[in-house]
């Protein structure tokens, strides 16, 4: 397509793109404006703030203020703690194992068999482990504690992290580490002082990816916590009462839960698709 020339195809392309953009953005847009509507106006079909309805901060006062602020802040705090700590643990275990599988040769089971087995752990349905997890955590008296959810999210993200870290270490030239080994470094020193810093961009990307997945995870949290360790997704699910759904409240809470992962994903957009396709697509 020559630049600036209007062809039948370019008209078709833009029509499709604009329609799909509206379809994609509309639910977010609607959630955002509904969170600024008062309860009296929550069911109205007005679109334009200031023009069609007067923005109200009622929802935000309830969600963040005296009434329910403590619960929301606790939810945000739990979400941040669980996502950041579990991702850290994933990164530690994952980079070590990923390094082992790229730099060493295993014999009894070949490297690629170990790697495939590790990745298969990513694929089983979470509900299959949710019941034993619940029983384990009950036995350990860890139900409704942060360690329980952190441990669950770590095992959920670890296979993917190992798998992606393998790519980064493979792309790293081995010579630098070999030179360091000859100079008397131990393998662990070579890893922590050379390989790890050199693959920092990849490590940050994997961390952000695991953070997003952990932040969004719902099933493990809902089965392992009931009061003190609820994360934002579970708090959203808790807005459903017998009276129905308060649109303003669920909108405000959803906005709080959606913003962090969406911003992180937008910042690392090229990496997200690589993570979601388990490394099958590299951009």
């Amino acid at each position: 397509m020559k630049k600036g020339r209007i062809t039948g195809f370019s008209v078709f392309a833009w029509v499709v793109l604009i329609l799909f953009s509206v379809w994609t953005v509309f639910p977010f847009f609607w959630g955002a404006i509904t969170s600024f509507k008062s309860p009296g106006e929550q069911y109205t079909t007005t679109f334009l703030p200031l023009v069609q309805f007067r923005p109200s901060t009622y929802a935000w006062q309830v969600v963040l203020g005296q009434a329910e602020g403590e619960r929301t802040r606790q939810g945000l705090r739990n979400s941040i703690l669980i996502s950041s700590l579990s991702s850290l643990l994933v990164l530690l275990l994952g980079s070590l194992a990923g390094y082992a599988l790229t730099r060493f040769r295993f014999h009894r089971w070949k490297n690629k068999d170990i790697a495939s087995w590790i990745l298969s752990n990513r694929m089983f349905p979470p509900i299959a482990v949710a019941i034993p997890f619940f029983l384990i955590m009950r036995t350990l008296k860890l139900l409704d504690t942060l360690p329980a959810v952190i441990m669950a999210h770590t095992v959920y993200n670890l296979p993917l992290a190992i798998w992606l870290m393998m790519d980064f270490f493979r792309e790293l030239p081995e010579e630098v580490e070999e030179a360091a080994l000859i100079d008397g470094c131990s393998s662990f020193q070579a890893f922590f002082r050379i390989a790890l810093p050199l693959s920092l961009p990849g490590i940050v990307a994997v961390y952000i990816l695991c953070f997003i997945f952990s932040w969004n995870e719902f099933l493990f949290v809902v089965t392992l916590s009931y009061r003190k360790t609820m994360t934002m997704p579970v708090i959203i699910a808790g807005t459903l009462t017998v009276r129905g759904l308060d649109f303003w409240k669920v909108s405000a809470l959803s906005l709080l839960a959606i913003t962090p992962p969406v911003v992180l994903a937008a910042l690392t957009s090229r990496f997200l698709i690589r993570g979601l396709t388990l490394g099958a697509i590299k951009e």
């Binding site: 977010f28 969004n216 719902f218 934002m232 959203i236 839960a257 959606i258 937008a266």
Partner: peptide, 10 residues
């Protein structure tokens, strides 16, 4: 990419 990045429950 935004719909996939948002929490599914939200």
């Amino acid at each position: 990419l935004l719909p996939m990045a948002a929490p599914p429950i939200a």
